[in-house]
Design a binder for these strands. Structure first.
Lengths: 264, 264
DNA sequence: GTGCATTTGTCCGTATGTATG
DNA sequence: ACATACATACGGACAAATGCA
């Protein structure tokens, strides 16, 4: 009817967006109900819903079921530092991220181990021939009872078969130490970060609302001879994580420049 | 009526997802029309639309206007290596031109410079007092005519005022070299990566369809004394980029001991 | 635990506007 | 100008999840 410039649902969208930005609707607050918004803006409930879905897909509000309705999303990321795996010293440049550092939250994890035929992504990174099996450790981490991240590690079975790497539950001295004792100490890693949206199965595993962006971090660890030993695939929901790297000129200058093309 | 476990639109979703995964629908192909899918699955067009919107928000298909309809999205990411900034190989080229040369694609860019009061994110990372202005260089990079990424750099105005850093257009020897000549050589950097969804203004600047996930990469560069000099904020759409880091034990072990932070 | 009220999720049918070839 | 296909919008209906009495 209006033949106007902008769509009706955008009015609703803009109204709610503004109220959220100005903290008139604070994180954790309930979003007004669909019927209420429909009446306020003189539009149908379906129109309100498209506006709400946009906000949901931008990560500003949660989907709401049952009595409680939708809520404004909270954003409290944990800091994830891939480099801490190799680090022996406290980070040097930490002024800002210290603020975001873990505030002593309650963390638990589940670990599942087994043997599978790797998919193409893992197989290529480990440079395995078709049909060679890998051992896996699939971990899901929980903070305050909600899943926070998953990380699945894969190592050729011939390396870890019968070792402590394949034992369920946490390994006190760390699985990387186990690999080192087996003669495959990890000394360098290539990390690939893919920002994307989760797929249905991942939504379920991480108990994410649809539309939550995340990062897939594929880390390929190499031993001293440069052979790939372990692939770890982390799924890090964007509303729960910030990934932090440090880099410095000196480290780059002293780095060997030989394996540049190995990524492809 | 359905009395079934899963929603009807999920059937449509699963069907299309499978056909895309198995390349029965190849990248660039047209997705079957909404009416056609509705008839095939014996559902209404609205139900088909919710399935298609999910696929769209997951980045698997494009939104389609006009005669052509929806198409299966192509996925050809560029490799973005923040660490190449500190590499010595090509001394003059900046991150993006090197990246584009590597891939052999046609790249252009627009650069805009100016002076602003920084927002909180930039101000805190540069440790500036309230009201201190910064110079900025805002770049939008295009590949094959479409925007590919943006990166906005900020440096305290007192450092770059009157220097070549504030000159529009590319600087032949690189802006980091200019900073070095001004006595602020960047030797280390803290990179924070936030997976998130773009906001309205960013959608416009990057010409993105809504729901495209992306990464915000905030890189804070420090000089030899550990003082923050430059903040660069990159927006990297997830369907066009993969971010790559390399790390190794040796670099972490040989790191300089600048300050003794309260060890964890 | 039951049942009720509320709110969102799903689904339908229909209609009109708009972008594209 | 026209056909096609998507975008927007309405109204109605029932199911499912949740909080609370």
């Amino acid at each position: 009817m209006p033949a106007d410039s902008r769509a009706r649902w955008e009015w609703v969208y803009d109204d709610l967006k503004r109220r959220i930005d100005q903290h008139e609707l604070a994180p954790g607050d309930q979003v007004p109900g669909e019927l209420q918004l429909a009446e306020q803006h003189k539009v149908s409930r379906q129109t309100v819903r498209t506006a709400l879905q946009r906000l949901q897909h931008e990560g500003l509000i949660n989907e709401g079921k049952g009595r409680l309705g939708r809520t404004v999303r909270e954003w409290r990321p944990l800091v994830y530092r891939p480099q801490s795996e190799f680090r022996r010293k406290p980070p040097t440049v930490d002024i800002y991220t210290q603020l975001l550092q873990d505030e002593g939250r309650d963390g638990t994890q589940t670990i599942e181990v087994g043997v599978v035929l790797p998919d193409e992504a893992v197989r290529q990174r480990l440079q395995l021939s078709q049909g060679e099996p890998v051992g896996y450790r699939r971990r899901t981490s929980y903070v305050d009872g909600v899943p926070f991240a998953t990380d699945d590690s894969y190592v050729p079975l011939r390396i870890v078969e019968g070792s402590e790497w394949m034992v369920p539950g946490s390994v006190e001295r760390g699985t990387n130490q186990v690999l080192a004792e087996l003669g495959y100490e990890l000394v360098e890693s290539l990390d690939e970060i893919y920002p994307r949206l989760p797929q249905a199965a991942e939504l379920e595993r991480l108990a994410l609302p649809p539309g939550t962006p995340m990062a897939e971090l594929i880390s390929t660890g190499h031993d001293r001879e440069g052979r790939p030993v372990q692939v770890t695939i982390c799924l890090l929901p964007g509303d729960r994580h910030v990934i932090v790297y440090e880099r410095n000129r000196r480290a780059e200058e002293t780095e060997p420049e030989t394996k540049e093309a190995a990524a492809e």
